[in-house]
Simulated scan of single mutants.
Amino acid sequence: MNSDSYTLNHPERLFQTASQFPDVFKPRAPESHKGTYGTLAVIGGAAGMSGAVVLAATAAIYQGCGKVWAGFNQLQLPFAVIPERAEIMLATAQMLLERGDISAWVCGCGMGLDGAAEALLPQVLQRAQGRPLLLDADALTLLSGPSENHLHETARQHGALILTPHPAEAARLLGVSTAEVQQNRIEAVQTLSAKFNAVAVLKGRHTLVAAPNGDTYTNQSGNAGLATAGSGDVLSGVIGSLLAQGVDAFQAAKAGVWLHGAAADVLRDSGTGEIGLLAGEIAPAARWLRNKLCG
């Protein structure tokens, strides 16, 4: 869909919501350059799951990150270049761990659960110390695994950590059932945030975002079109991009969740509809919407 055909329904409501995130919805300074907007590393993409990293990295570059690296949990790179997205730089995960210029990290999208992934997660936690880090998908499953005591303490000490579980992942992290999480979602997200000293994002209808001090945000954007493979990877890329651009973790998570859902609403209202909405369609719609709301 051409971006000119997007429909902006209820603009007054959208502008009012966007005003809650002042560090996200503001015009760029004329003297900006790519270094102004940070460098994001997205780590994941085991064999057969490269698309997860591609979706997250693509979403990050569409959200205005200065530079984006896609780091694959594979011995050799699966692509010479990502088709139609040559702007994204490619590396193996191990190569990215050696870089010293990363502003923020996203880890877990399609990373896998094998021995290589188990060894990779603590390395990422250590390497990302002092920089914002978002853990999603397989990284969350590994965080809840047998080595949880050591990893939990490392995660707690990070200081700028975001966790983005769906209900089943949240249940594993908390040691309860998925049904228990869903029965009291607010208590679950607040407990998760306090347990890991992290901003916690509990995905689902009316996604919740909690800070370690108990502050909790309930998101109102989004629709059933987001129930599609890769939607969560796009959300990780959007939030990661905001982190790399210097937005603090709580605001980045809240704004990223809202923008991700609002982009799906724009697609629904512009004729794409909810059935068959593709995760890859969310990123360009979110870019269009952010630019509209930046005035």
Rank of each mutant, 00 (worst) to 15 (best):
M1H: 15
R13N: 13
F15R: 15
P22L: 05
F25S: 07
E31S: 15
S32R: 15
H33M: 12
H33L: 12
Y37T: 01
Y37F: 15
L40R: 07
L40V: 11
A41E: 04
I43W: 13
M49L: 15
S50I: 12
S50R: 11
A52G: 08
V53W: 07
V54I: 14
A56I: 04
A57H: 10
T58W: 05
A60G: 10
Q63V: 05
G64Q: 00
C65A: 15
C65L: 06
W69E: 04
N73L: 13
Q74E: 15
L75M: 13
P78V: 11
P83T: 03
A86R: 12
E87D: 15
M89Q: 15
L96Q: 08
R99Q: 15
R99N: 11
D101Y: 07
W105L: 03
G108I: 08
C109Q: 11
G115S: 14
A117T: 08
L121Q: 02
V124N: 04
L125D: 05
Q126H: 12
A128W: 00
R131M: 09
L133N: 02
L133E: 01
D138T: 07
L142G: 10
E148M: 14
N149M: 12
R156P: 06
Q157S: 13
I162S: 01
P167H: 08
A170I: 00
R172G: 06
A179R: 14
V181F: 00
R185G: 01
Q190G: 04
Q190N: 05
K195V: 00
N197W: 08
A198E: 08
L202F: 11
K203T: 12
G204H: 09
V209I: 13
G214V: 05
D215L: 12
Y217V: 04
A224C: 11
G225H: 05
T228G: 03
S231K: 10
S236H: 04
G246D: 00
A249E: 08
Q251H: 10
Q251Y: 08
A255V: 00
G256C: 06
R268H: 09
D269W: 09
S270D: 11
S270G: 12
T272W: 12
T272E: 13
I275D: 13
G276N: 09
I282Y: 04
N291Y: 08
K292N: 06
